[in-house]
Design a protein around this nucleic acid. Sequence first.
RNA 1: GGAGAGAUGGCGGAGUGGCUUAACGCGCCGGUCUUGAAAACCGGAUCCCGCGCAAGCGGGACGGGGGUUCGAAUCCCUCUCUCUCCGCCA
Length: 424
Amino acid sequence: MLDIKLIRESPDLVRAGLQTRRAPVDIAAVLALDERRRAAITEGDRLKNARNEISRKIGLLKKAGEDTSGIQRQTREMGERIAALDADVRAIEDEQRRLLLAIPNLPHASVPVGEDATGNVVIREWGQKRHFDFPAKDHVALGEALGLFDFARAARMSGAGFPLLTGPGARLARALIQFMLDLHTTRHGYTEVAPPFLVSTAAMTGTGQLPKLAEDMYHVPGDDLWLIPTAEVSVTNIYREEIIRDPLPIKLVAHTPCFRREAGAAGQATRGLIRVHQFDKVELVKFADPATSYAELEALVGDAEDVLQTLGLAYRVLQLCSGDMSFAAAKCYDLELWAPGHQGWLEVSSCSNFESFQARRAEIRWKNPQGKTEFVHTLNGSGVALPRLLVALLENGQQADGSVVLPEVLRPYLGGLDRLTPKT
RNA sequence: GGAGAGAUGGCGGAGUGGCUUAACGCGCCGGUCUUGAAAACCGGAUCCCGCGCAAGCGGGACGGGGGUUCGAAUCCCUCUCUCUCCGCCA
């Protein structure tokens, strides 16, 4: 949510920023409501001040045993006008909040202007893309031969897009999760949390998924709860409606399943594990001092990259352009792994600084060193998403005989296993 | 699911219609004293909104919302959450 004061004081700057995103927004309607709201408040406060003084007087007169019925009748009328004005203010504020919640964040000055994904910029590449002197298989072929998953049986119980990992596949997934959690907690200084997977509408609104993205999420109507599409939601909401007293930054890491309806994504790279309705992810979340949040973003990207580097997988870092960034982000980097079987890049992480956009929605504040209460900056990034990491690992590690060599750092998590071999 | 109790500042905890401008204690910050610290003493502290160039002035907030009243932390209704007991349960 944007600051109404910023919109009021710099409407042209706000218009220009929103222009570079896909959604052009009517700022004039918000400003008109703001005008009406302030007028009603000023008038209401004036009346309340008068009423307070008279009420105080009535108390004194009554104590002195005097008749106050005339003056009371007069104040009663005043009370009715106050109640009407209060109702006006409430209605205006509801409408204003409704409009503000639908306005996306402003892009940071360093974000390239662009229409869509073609406007994204490659910042750097790391590692050598693997080449094989045999025909490379994709992860579906490899995984089926190795007995890592069973899409047919999973589809029978849940429909397409709900993977069933089996035997060594399930164990490899668990090893990767534990490896990532250990890396972030011991090497990067994050504190591990295990949050709820179902959250309230208020929590979803706090991080910006609602009201816009209701169609993309699973809803449990009986209890009015939502399945999280990312741990970002639960972890960021840990401090909702709080003034943080601990020193910043606060760095948290969580492993959770993620649930996404992927409405409208039918036909798009839906084979195998590339795009699924349920997947596991290790998520990094930071609550940062606004003065240093962009340095924290670079560090966060580095922490996610470290996962890929430690596993020895080639990747590239993209900076998203204004038109391709998600609703709440002010600046965003994507990490993409090279997948030799698909001959393409796979997004495994998205690292964003939301500045105060989420904090304002969720009312997450702190006491800055000057003693002022202000909104924190929130950041998060995948560190990283599991299924596509698994895809890249299989496709990069494949051998001519169909086996897959596993990275050394994973072997302690697999009882020393160094290679997956096809079922006989 | 049933019955009961409760929700007050960073924490504990008073407060049953009008000097409450939320007592008191702990903790916190500043000051005095001290070589330094502790103790003692003095002082200060919340958040939101509006008006104002500013100093400042005003309004609102005692879990959320609504009501009664000239006036509500206090009375009424309602919702949420917490705790205790019972039932069920991995």
